[in-house]
């Protein structure tokens, strides 16, 4: 039982580790010292803030003076705040885009890159990964250039192909969401591809040969050999992209400012706006607690469904 996540090889080694520790009890403190810097930082900068968030969410506070104790009023207000509902709905859309579009596309690309004897694999992989290392500010500028209603590249291309441009990419609520989704696809797909590709390269070749001997077609091989072997990677990728999309901020903030008419307002933007533009710290904290419960609960659920975080031994 090395860890909850490591596979059998790790577990085998941990047994020898146990024997060693039992022989040398005088060093029993060593592992605690090794992990302590992390937990010190974790308590100070994660647990304490989460606790403070819970407490703040029960108060009304403009950032100065003493917070007013208002019990659950912030939550009651959130329950009827149409902006917050919009933010939740939009964020749900972004999460769906990430999990149902970005992740499968990344898997598809990884499949293509895993073809045996593929040329310049490194070139493809590298090029697809580049968007994630680009500063969000440049991402916003690029897509501002592309989606501009009057002079954007997207409309210029449409105009030269079909004679009509004038699509209001960022000005129409639905199109604005689609535009953000496109930015997400551009930014995240290549990053996630790397994980799937590594996972695919780890599938033992004999499994494919056995499937071929059984006369399994491409699709059957994929569902019976590839997918089960990829389960741990998939779990990691799904959780990562879920948590990432659930707290999306930069893309809508820089590109649309949450508009038009709050159609791309995300929960994180809602929190930012409440706290730092409207000085409603208690209200922002309550929204953050709601986000925490939703994201933490759902990602634990996904972990359980896909089987990571389950004890390996």
């Amino acid at each position: 039982m090395t860890t909850t996540v490591a596979g059998p090889p790790g577990a085998a080694r941990a047994h020898s580790a146990r024997g060693r520790e039992e022989h040398r009890p005088r060093r029993a403190w060593a592992p605690y010292l090794f992990v302590s810097p992390f937990y010190l930082l974790y308590v100070l900068f994660m647990l304490v803030p989460v606790g403070v968030s819970l407490w703040l969410s029960l108060t009304e506070w403009v950032g100065l003076g003493t917070p007013h104790w208002v019990r659950l009023r912030n939550y009651r207000l959130l329950a009827t705040d149409i902006s917050f509902h919009r933010a939740l709905g939009n964020t749900a859309v972004f999460v769906l885009v990430a999990v149902c579009l970005v992740v499968p596309l990344a898997l598809l690309i990884a499949q293509a890159l895993n073809t045996r004897g593929l040329r310049v694999r490194d070139l493809w992989r590298t090029a697809y990964f580049v968007p994630i290392v680009v500063s969000p500010i440049l991402v916003a500028l690029i897509f501002g250039l592309i989606f501009d209603r009057q002079f954007g590249l997207a409309n210029a291309v449409l105009r030269s192909l079909f004679g009509t441009g004038g699509v209001d990419w960022l000005g129409d609520p639905n199109l604005a969401r689609i535009s953000i989704a496109l930015v997400m696809l551009w930014r995240w797909t290549g990053y996630l591809t790397v994980f799937f590709l590594a996972g695919l390269q780890n599938v033992p070749r004999e499994l494919y040969e056995a499937a071929a001997l059984d006369g399994a077609g491409r699709l059957r091989t994929f569902t019976t050999v590839t997918l089960p072997a990829l389960k741990p990677v998939t779990a990691f990728v799904v959780v990562t992209s879920f948590v990432g999309a659930a707290q999306i901020f930069e893309e809508p903030y820089l590109l649309t400012g949450g508009g038009p008419a709050e159609s791309t307002l995300s929960v994180t933007m809602f929190i930012y706006r409440a706290a730092f533009q409207r000085q409603q710290f208690g209200y922002a904290a309550a929204a953050a607690v709601v986000l925490f419960v939703l994201v933490f609960g759902l990602s634990r659920l996904v972990n359980r469904l896909l089987g990571i975080g389950r004890a390996a031994s």
């Binding site: 900068f45 994660m46 304490v48 803030p49 989460v50 606790g51 403070v52 968030s53 703040l56 948590v243 659930a246 707290q247 901020f249 929960v267 994180t268 929190i271 930012y272 706290a275 710290f281 922002a284 904290a285 953050a288 607690v289 986000l291 925490f292 994201v295």
Partner: peptide, 8 residues
């Protein structure tokens, strides 16, 4: 999510 601890 980072947004949870942003304000506190």
């Amino acid at each position: 999510p980072f947004a949870v601890i942003l304000v506190p």
